[in-house]
Write a protein that binds this DNA or RNA. Structure first.
Lengths: 234, 234
DNA sequence: GCAACTGTTGAGCGTGCGACCAATAAGCGA
DNA sequence: TCGCTTATTGGTCGCACGCTCAACAGTTGC
């Protein structure tokens, strides 16, 4: 109404404005997809003119990459905080799976699918995706190594084990845009099952994230053969 | 030069023209991505006018869905032919993994990532993707059930086992646009490892696709713990 | 040989995109 | 308080997209 005749200009410091733009872009990327991160869309979000976005990001591709990096990084920080104050690796890993397997993770899965596809055409984004994959892997591998050193986990090769877990999580997340949600419990639990198997943990250890934090052992015998284990109700 | 003044019109039967368009669209989808399946692009490919493509596909989204469906279906037919003339399920599954793990499969992985992402915005494509997932799963599950009935495979739930294998394949394929290719051998073999474990097969049974076709048993003890198996050279 | 059918063309509309640039005004230091 | 720096605006360009439609021309059947 009052602003249609003459726009009120709000002048901010470059650092503030840039951060504001990146935050808005990350939000749009997460909610609507990376292809919706356009100069006009972000400008509208912040109630500024498209030219201003161009001013801070002369190449729009840089903004898209930044949006993905920001969103993915924030999620990583929630999922696997660098600061694990006092919590055991087992509890931490259990908490990680609880979050990374629930429906709340679908938005993140969508973002990863989005970014991995768009990487095909946009080199700048591709570099960002590679860096983020590295960051996620590094963070998880650190947690696993810590658990191995403390005797909670057991694996010959933490690096390979980490990748194996991530591959399963990626595989489960691949259908975030299509699945109707009716998946067998055994499949939903695949990531946890893989982790427990590869880390020498008893079945169920990583399912109860409110459970024992000390040793993580329950005394249940480990799965012996290769047959599919019966699905547990919880 | 000679055709610039007056275009030579080639009139074809609707069925032929439609098939021609779908084939071209599928080829473009596979080579350059589904977003390159545009009226203008396909028209250029066939040396006709864009309006003609619109004539056969009043909605461009239908053409994209058809392109994906055609490409995915052709690949499924190569990967898991409906007609398994005389070959044992073990040999057949081994052949499947040989193809679905090699670099030649990257193009298909890219297409799936592409389609799954685009499904977010295009309902028609989403239905097609869901149908293709169903088809792939059904074909693989049929093979596994056949193996179980013949005593080559052993699993309590062929349905779940099938999905588990496909999840791993999806997880491995997720990085087709970003990976530099340097992946640990153990990770590359994850799909085969999963199949062998879930089907009660000895390690290596599904790696040698030129190997024994009868029983598929080698006498080697099954993997006990979660330790990474030594990498085999072939 | 001619007429009817319809596959095919050519042209144009409206939209949204990234990129560019001169003009403007907000806020800071002198 | 004034002037300068520069953050911000408003407008425009070229491009590619899907979609529409009247006009054209192969092909077929009479």
């Amino acid at each position: 109404m009052s602003s249609s005749v003459q726009r009120k200009r709000i002048r901010k410091s470059p650092a503030d404005r840039r951060a504001e733009i990146v935050d808005a872009a990350a939000a749009v990327a997460l909610a609507e997809g990376l292809e919706c991160v356009t100069l006009r869309r972000i400008a509208e979000q912040l109630d500024v003119r498209p030219g201003l976005i161009s001013h801070y990001f002369p190449s729009a591709e840089d903004l898209v990459a930044e949006a993905f990096g920001s969103a993915a990084n924030a999620e990583l920080e929630t999922l696997l905080p660098a600061d694990r104050s006092g919590e055991t690796p087992t509890r931490h890993l259990a908490r990680f799976f609880a979050h990374a397997t629930g429906e709340a993770y679908d938005a993140i899965s969508r973002l990863w699918i989005n970014a991995r596809h768009l990487s095909r055409y946009r080199p700048v984004l591709r570099d960002r995706v590679t860096a983020q994959e590295e960051a996620w892997r590094g963070r998880l591998e650190g947690l696993i190594r810590e658990g191995v050193e403390g005797g909670e986990f057991r694996t010959d090769d933490p690096h390979v084990t980490t990748i194996q877990i991530l591959v399963v999580i990626d595989g489960l997340g691949a259908h975030a845009n299509t699945d109707s949600g009716n998946r067998p419990e055994t499949v939903t639990r695949m990531a946890v099952t893989t982790a427990e198997r590869e880390l020498g943990l008893a079945r169920g250890t990583l399912s109860r994230h409110g459970g024992p934090g000390g040793t993580g052992r329950t005394g249940a015998p480990p799965a012996s053969g290769g047959a599919a284990p019966p699905a547990t109700s919880n």
